[in-house]
Design a protein around this nucleic acid. Sequence first.
DNA 1: TCTGCATGAAAAA
DNA 2: TTTTCCTGCAGAG
Length: 267
Amino acid sequence: MPEGHTLHRLARRQQKCFGGREVRVSSPQGRFAAGATVVDGMEFHRAEAWGKHLIQRYRDGARQQIVHVHLGLYGGFTELPVPMGEPIGQVRMRIVGDEVGMDLRGPTACELYTPAELDDLVARLGPDPLRRGADPERAWQAIHRSARPIGALLMDQKVIAGVGNVYRAEVLFRARLDPLRAGRGVGRAAFDELWTDLVTLMRIGVRRRRIHVVRVEDDYGPGSYAPDRPRTYVYRRTGEPCRICGTPIAMAEMAGRNLYWCPNCQR
DNA sequence: TCTGCATGAAAAA
DNA sequence: TTTTCCTGCAGAG
């Protein structure tokens, strides 16, 4: 679930449900009890995403508080109508608004942040394709002088924020780039195409709530992205035929994660 | 019912 | 590079 598009979607949803309103915040499981106590009863000012990080801002008059959430591999928010009923399982944070509430389970991080900590976070993240004003030049600078493979660079949040294992594999396939190619071997034109495609694909991800990168014409004739069609070219398709050339999709580990690619299309 | 794996990343080694 | 965090689900049996 959680690559950058999930977090941006979530930020929007929380903004809509809670933005500008007073909320009750608790930690039924207890591991965020101290933080929950601090923001409980404050106004949920706004929510925003930076890559895969969710930032919530609360305020109460002049008093302001920041909460930082990172979902990790399997964290997630569940939305429920109010009254929400007893928490089920390990609920790290519960936010209750006027009509709906959300339960957070399994996050890697859920903690109060100081403004300085937020500054540090933002400073160590690369440009986020989903944020307005993101500067791809910073990513190009990191990539074009690096000896690391482009497949590893794309997973590095310091290079580009918000890209995860699915977008990495799919965007490289669409660019017909060999994941093993060194960053410094990626030309300016190829990089520009990569960045532009990420912006396009991740926006589709936010809108459709899922990663969908397969063009209909690649399977079923002309058209755009269609809801019930295959959504990926290579991700988790080991051994299955490439949708373009029929070559079996390959898998190997890179940057600690399974990487999928077509050895024929991607050179 | 049980097992292993997963769209992540910090910390340890 | 490996371990750890610790949820949900698909596939096996």
